[in-house]
Design a binder for these strands. Structure first.
Lengths: 112, 112
DNA sequence: ACATTGAATGAGCAAATACGTATATACTTG
DNA sequence: CAAGTATATACGTATTTGCTCATTCAATGT
């Protein structure tokens, strides 16, 4: 295991699917809201400002992708981040984007 | 800079866009093909087995996202990976997916 | 059993996107 | 300048996906 690259076609599809799951603003908001601990659907709906139906749908997508876990407690369902790599991924992307933006800013300054 | 989470709405959109760029199998194949050095469009078209038009389109998407850089040499255009975080991202995702799949395999075994 | 509350799902619509075919652009060479 | 080659783009189409509204499902309390 872990020969890493190059990935075969099926592996590529799976990786692409994982990125796709993280490619929606509302889902990123949900994930982010869960970084500091589990929350139920009502809380998440209030925090992210979406409709309950839409939040619920996105949560199912994240569950199917094993990004989140859920726990039922009476009428409520609590969600939490299941995959520890998620925050690392977001951190990496943020760092890289910062760098790119700084470079662009530098070029902008240089063109004064 | 680098306060990291929580991200504001605009930052969320940008991060989502970055993930979206990585969420297409053909684009992942292109990126992967470039991990071992720059290649021109004809080579990439042959390696990935798509039409030239489609490859070219995906390359433009990756350029716009600053994932790749390009270099013209006569009639040919050579592309290379510009962002070093990309291979780290793919590595992280692969590692996490391996783990998930192993867990599923373990549960499957446990249910024997 | 019924009403109430929290969460999930079905149907329909609008927007985004990936693809192929055809065409255009850029550069080189005769 | 004409022809040829490598790459990019325009256009039309099919598929996917995200959203809302309405409804259903699940669990609790009366």
């Amino acid at each position: 295991m872990s020969r890493q690259f190059p990935l075969n076609d099926q592996a590529i599809e799976i990786v692409a699917r994982r990125f796709a799951v993280l490619a929606e603003p509302m889902r990123l908001r949900l994930i982010q809201a869960l970084f500091d601990g589990e929350k139920n659907v009502t809380e998440l709906t209030a925090l992210t400002g979406g409709t309950q139906a839409n939040i619920s749908r996105h949560l199912q997508t994240l569950i199917a992708a094993h990004v989140l876990d859920r726990r039922k407690e009476g009428l409520q369902v609590f969600y939490r981040v299941a995959d520890p790599s998620i925050s690392k991924l977001c951190g990496l992307v943020c760092g890289s984007l910062e760098k790119t933006l700084n470079q662009q800013a530098a070029h902008f300054d240089a063109g004064r």
